[in-house]
Computed example of a mutant assay.
Amino acid sequence: MKIAVVDYGSGNLRSVYQAIKKVAPLNSDVWVTEDPNKVKEADRVIFPGQGAMPDCMGNLRKAGLEEAVRGSLKRKPFFAVCVGEQMLFDFSEEGDVSALGVFPGRVVRFPANQYGEDGSRLKVPQMGWNRVRKTMDHYMWEGIPDNSWFYFVHSYYVVPADLNLIAGTTDYGRKVTVAVAKDYIFATQFHPEKSADMGLKLYSNFLTWKP
Score class of each variant (00 low, 15 high):
M1A: 13
V5C: 11
V6S: 00
Y8M: 00
G9P: 01
G9M: 02
G11W: 05
S28Y: 03
S28E: 05
D29N: 13
V30H: 03
W31K: 12
W31D: 09
R44E: 06
R44T: 02
V45S: 01
I46M: 11
P48Q: 05
Q50H: 12
G51T: 04
M53D: 12
D55Q: 12
C56H: 01
A63Q: 07
G64I: 10
L65G: 00
V69P: 00
L73I: 11
R75F: 12
P77S: 09
F78T: 02
A80E: 01
C82A: 11
E85S: 06
E85D: 01
E85F: 06
E85N: 14
F91C: 08
S92N: 01
E93H: 11
G95P: 02
V97R: 07
A99L: 15
G105C: 13
V107T: 00
V108I: 10
P111I: 13
A112I: 15
E117T: 07
E117Q: 10
D118H: 07
G119Y: 11
P125E: 10
M127R: 04
M127L: 15
G128H: 09
G128T: 06
W129M: 09
W129E: 10
K134T: 08
T135R: 05
Y139Q: 12
G143F: 01
N147P: 05
W149D: 09
F150Y: 11
V153P: 04
H154V: 11
S155W: 03
Y156P: 03
Y157D: 01
Y157T: 07
V159F: 02
V159W: 00
P160L: 07
L163M: 14
A167F: 04
G168Y: 02
K175D: 15
V176A: 04
T177C: 13
V178Y: 06
V178W: 05
A179G: 07
A179N: 03
K182N: 10
K182P: 03
D183G: 08
I185K: 00
F190Q: 02
F190V: 02
H191W: 13
A196C: 05
A196G: 01
D197C: 09
M198C: 15
M198Y: 14
K201H: 07
Y203A: 03
L207S: 07
K210Q: 14
